[in-house]
Structure formats: structure tokens, C-alpha cells
């Protein structure tokens, strides 16, 4: 009963503008960056290696290789700084947490594309 109240509260402010995405998907995230009093939008493109949490506490982690270095960013799904998200490619993965990608590089770190989910 207590958890229901929390879920209701969170649902009241829940966003519905993001498409459904899954671990393994390659996504392009638009992030608002505020610096020196200015506001701009930055893109972060990579594979979703983790989705965790529930309700307002839900976050996802995107991994990409930038100049040969692995970079991961974790975003709260409900954060107003995540202005848009686009699924570029859906990949076939067999687990929910793709931490094994951290140990792989180059060709070995590729994911196989899957048929588009219908939703």
C-alpha cells in the first residue's frame, strides 16, 4: 500500500515522450549542458548497457568508444536534462546487463542487429 502511493506520485510526473528502448540498443541521447550561464544540447551516442531502478529512480547507462577510450554515462530517465532519445539500432543481446562489453574492444565488442521489435 505504501509503495502504491509512491508509484502514484511518480506516475504523476512521469514522462511519456521517450521511445521504448532496451539494453543493447544503440541510442542517441540529447543532453542539456549548462555552463558559463549558457545552455546547449549535446549528443551522446552509444550502446545501452544497463537499465536499472524503477519509477522516478530509473536510470540507464550508455557506453561508447571515444578516441579509443571507453566512455560511459548514466542518465536518470526522468531527468529534464535528457531532452530526447532516439533508438538508432536494435541489437540482439541475451542478458540485461552488458558489462562484458567493458572487457572487449574493437571487432569483438560489436553487437548483432536484431529484427525491429514491434511496439
Amino acid at each position: 500500500m505504501n509503495q502504491e502511493i509512491i508509484t502514484q506520485l511518480d506516475n504523476a510526473t512521469k514522462r511519456h515522450d521517450l521511445p521504448v528502448f532496451h539494453p543493447g540498443d544503440r541510442v542517441r541521447v540529447s543532453v542539456t549542458i549548462r555552463e558559463a550561464g549558457k545552455e546547449r544540447t549535446q549528443m551522446f551516442e552509444g550502446d545501452v548497457i544497463r537499465i536499472r531502478g524503477s519509477n522516478a529512480g530509473r536510470t540507464f547507462t550508455v557506453r561508447k568508444i571515444s578516441n579509443g577510450v571507453g566512455v560511459e554515462r548514466t542518465f536518470p530517465v526522468e531527468s529534464p536534462n535528457v531532452t530526447a532519445l532516439e533508438v538508432i539500432r536494435e541489437n540482439k543481446v541475451r542478458r540485461a546487463k552488458l558489462y562484458f562489453l567493458r572487457d572487449l574492444r574493437g571487432k569483438a565488442a560489436r553487437l548483432k542487429e536484431r529484427d525491429r521489435r514491434s511496439h
Binding site: 505504501n2 509503495q3 502511493i5 509512491i6 506520485l9 529512480g57
Partner: peptide, 12 residues
């Protein structure tokens, strides 16, 4: 006490 959650302000 019902429990805890989080709230996002406009600036994130």
C-alpha cells in the same frame, strides 16, 4: 512514513 522517492527540478 510512506517511503522515499526523488523529485527532479527544472535544471535537472
Amino acid at each position: 512514513k510512506v517511503g522515499m522517492t526523488r523529485i527532479f527540478l527544472e535544471d535537472g
